[in-house]
Design a protein around this nucleic acid. Sequence first.
DNA 1: CATGAATGAGGTTTCATTCAT
DNA 2: GATGAATGAAACCTCATTCAT
Lengths: 200, 200, 200, 200
Amino acid sequence: MAPRPDPAETRELILEAARRCFARKGYYRTSMDDIVAESGLSKGTLYWHFENKRALFLALFDRLMGEVFAPTEEIMSSDAPVSERLRRLGVAVSEAIAAHPEFAAVPANFLLELWQDEEFARHYLAMLESLVEQTEALLQEGIERGEFRPMDVHEVTWGLMALYDGIILYHMIGLPGDLKTRLVTMTDLVVEGMRKRDNS
Amino acid sequence: MAPRPDPAETRELILEAARRCFARKGYYRTSMDDIVAESGLSKGTLYWHFENKRALFLALFDRLMGEVFAPTEEIMSSDAPVSERLRRLGVAVSEAIAAHPEFAAVPANFLLELWQDEEFARHYLAMLESLVEQTEALLQEGIERGEFRPMDVHEVTWGLMALYDGIILYHMIGLPGDLKTRLVTMTDLVVEGMRKRDNS
Amino acid sequence: MAPRPDPAETRELILEAARRCFARKGYYRTSMDDIVAESGLSKGTLYWHFENKRALFLALFDRLMGEVFAPTEEIMSSDAPVSERLRRLGVAVSEAIAAHPEFAAVPANFLLELWQDEEFARHYLAMLESLVEQTEALLQEGIERGEFRPMDVHEVTWGLMALYDGIILYHMIGLPGDLKTRLVTMTDLVVEGMRKRDNS
Amino acid sequence: MAPRPDPAETRELILEAARRCFARKGYYRTSMDDIVAESGLSKGTLYWHFENKRALFLALFDRLMGEVFAPTEEIMSSDAPVSERLRRLGVAVSEAIAAHPEFAAVPANFLLELWQDEEFARHYLAMLESLVEQTEALLQEGIERGEFRPMDVHEVTWGLMALYDGIILYHMIGLPGDLKTRLVTMTDLVVEGMRKRDNS
DNA sequence: CATGAATGAGGTTTCATTCAT
DNA sequence: GATGAATGAAACCTCATTCAT
């Protein structure tokens, strides 16, 4: 007899296949048949595990965001100087992406769907907001410790997010340059820009 | 029969209708039928003026990028301090986008939905590269004038591009915050980070 | 829902519907919608079983050619006089065509509408060549047995093919006359023309 | 001022362009736009000279058939032996085709349309019948002169037509071999098959 | 006579989803 | 749990034809 397959494993196979497909061709250009072919499973199985294409994408997104942001919490709560912690964040993110080179495209795709899709939008914002809160607290700490000048912490936090997403996006679409170098360079510049000057 | 319309005007009607549609629903979710309905023209007319959906989008993209980047040249070649010119760039871009609220989504579409498309990618890169060259020259001038510390001009230029695209993207997808404020705030932070310190 | 039908049977239904449609209107004038209507199936089903219209036609063609040429091998390898075998071939072909009155138009379609198509041409040639080889061997045997005068076997074989296809074509397009009579009459004339004369 | 173009010349240009297009791609795959491009004229001009695509094709067909069959009358009414005249017919046809290598495909295309198009059918049959009558008379003369055995003249005439069309068709679709050789070889074989034997 | 933009019905194909087995 | 054939709406695109200039 064929060994009865483990459902959790099947789910895994689907997610991995979907990850490869979405990374290769994006959300719209990936068909369920593509994922069927990539996974070696059947169409019915896909629909048994995931309600529809969107739900499959959403599940994948959750897991990917988890992997990318897993190290952040630890870094943020260390007691190194804030500027040092920010730089380490850049390094951590770039390493997470480098470790999964092909999956990295998915968040960009996600934004695509997000934009004008209520369900997605709520989902993504929730995720982003927790990250924003942590970063705001980090910057605030920097100010209180006297590392940074006073500033609009909320504004700069969103600016940093946008900077990171922009750099990651450029990386995904194959623009030239090294991801880690660019993340660190730009983080350092912004950190330097925030730093308290002796004469100020 | 109806009096013969001016072909150039027809082309315009199509582009405007397409702009509204793409801004509303994105590239993939907009069908040629949507544009037909929005324009009030016939499908044959659309295909008479544009080879296919992709070509229509590309034509639209070109024109939009032109509008957004039209003011940059003038700003870049002024003789104000480089840091001042950079800040004005941010202002100019945000105003161009604000002036055409509904069209602005199109470039984001381009990046998000179409980066898998070789033809599109080449097209966009060509456009970006000219901007990169100008910016590199600007930063170089800043260093030579003693405004900025020495740095890897190429790297920072791409980082600035990514920063701008990230901020614009966040704006397009409706994340909270004011576009101009954010562009200026972040530009200033980076400029401050590049600035030559008295004691360095 | 309807009880699950047998896929092989579905394929059969499609082929039969296509056969009727192509016979009625030819390849180009038959739309996939025509075949959908004729088969009572859905468009998706057609495309599940056949990659595209061309592939459907090709599959149909293969089967029809198979039916028409099935009896040839047996006839060719009998030990009757070669001239007798050639005449029997004509009879067999005309009977195969008469047995499937409505399908017969498809090969004509093939030749007339699709000879510009590389893929089709290759396909047809492969089929024809095996037939050509057999016929060449047959004529050669006729010469060696002293039934026929020496001749350019290759040239005459292709001439016979063309004769048959011409006659079948005229039959398909409804020109007057009886298929079998004409095939046999012309075969006999050519055979007579090849025959060794006592005084030569 | 531009010299006013001669309408007859324009008509000629259209027919020549159409000939090239139809020969290249067949009737259905040739679009009016193809002919517009090939001719360098405008769509309106095509429709001013010809009512529609079909009428254009028909006009072209007439002229081509005229060119191919122009020499037949003279040959048929010579007083050479009938067998010799038949052979000359084959030569004449092959030379007419060789002289216009690219137009030759059109008659085959014509048959395609003919098949199931009443208007075309009438047209083609009228042309063919005049040829059939001449050929029947020729064969009859051959019998009366004692060159040929008695036979069903009508049947053999249609058989010869089919033979010629088959050979021409094979030539058009690019099957191997030389057109003239094949026409002559097969004509001779059939003539030989009709010839009165000394001992019969 | 000539032009070419405009038309719209109709073509082929794709694809997310369902459901009997 | 798993399968894969079946569905049909909807996508993109073609093209013969018209007609105001």
